[in-house]
Design a protein around this nucleic acid. Structure first.
Lengths: 108, 108
DNA sequence: GCAACACTAAACCAAATGGTAAAGCATGAG
DNA sequence: CTCATGCTTTACCATTTGGTTTAGTGTTGC
């Protein structure tokens, strides 16, 4: 379960684009083809193909080609590394906040 | 508390670099100057200054210049938007996983 | 005053990103 | 068989990114 630094970079890098976040959102309700994922966007199929490749390289989605169609689906649990890092960071963040608050209260 | 798409992009973009994640990690124990943040890295001060600027633009840190020294600190709660998005996404992710599991169980 | 220090800005560079257009390659429909 | 479909590949382009060096700017220490 231990994820290395490099995979965190590719996951956050993948999430740093609203088109790709939208793709993940759209996949929550089930599998979609590349064409279906493209339809809400003003973008060529080739461009969408690149976004899909970025998400797959980051391990966030899994794709399979059935015939001439590529079907895309979420990879369950793939966000957990990103989630853990933020959660861990937030924990200290809020500890700092708490100690700041008590420090200020102590001073007042 | 409303999260705009654009700020999510800049936050995840800021997190998509191991040097910047390390900076956030190093700031958990308190404020640091740009030089102090640079010391563990094989990198010029100018380069570190840019990383600090990226984190500040994303709203993840706050900096203040005292004399010739710039002091950097975490901004409490700044990760919450990023955290919420992932948490929300994970929620559906796992619902899909659960329904997949019960689907498979039903089939077996 | 003046030198060392801590950035900061400018110019530059290579590589990555996000897009396009156009051609190619399978495959499914008729 | 033929042809439209659904990508995929290639080549190209502009912009951004992560780094450098060099040259300031404003402090601080002596």
């Amino acid at each position: 379960m231990v994820k290395h630094e490099s995979s965190l970079s590719s996951i956050y890098g993948a999430l740093a684009d609203s088109t790709r976040r939208r793709i993940l959102h759209d996949l929550r309700t089930g599998e979609r083809t590349v064409s279906e994922l493209r339809s809400p966007h003003d973008m060529t199929l080739a461009a969408m193909g690149k976004h899909v490749a970025v998400l797959e390289a980051a391990g966030l989605i899994r794709t399979t080609k059935r015939g001439r169609v590529r079907s895309c689906a979420l990879v369950p649990g793939a966000l957990s590394a990103a989630q853990s890092w933020i959660d861990e960071q937030s924990r200290f963040w809020n500890e700092r906040l708490d100690s700041l608050v008590s420090h200020l209260e102590g001073e007042a």
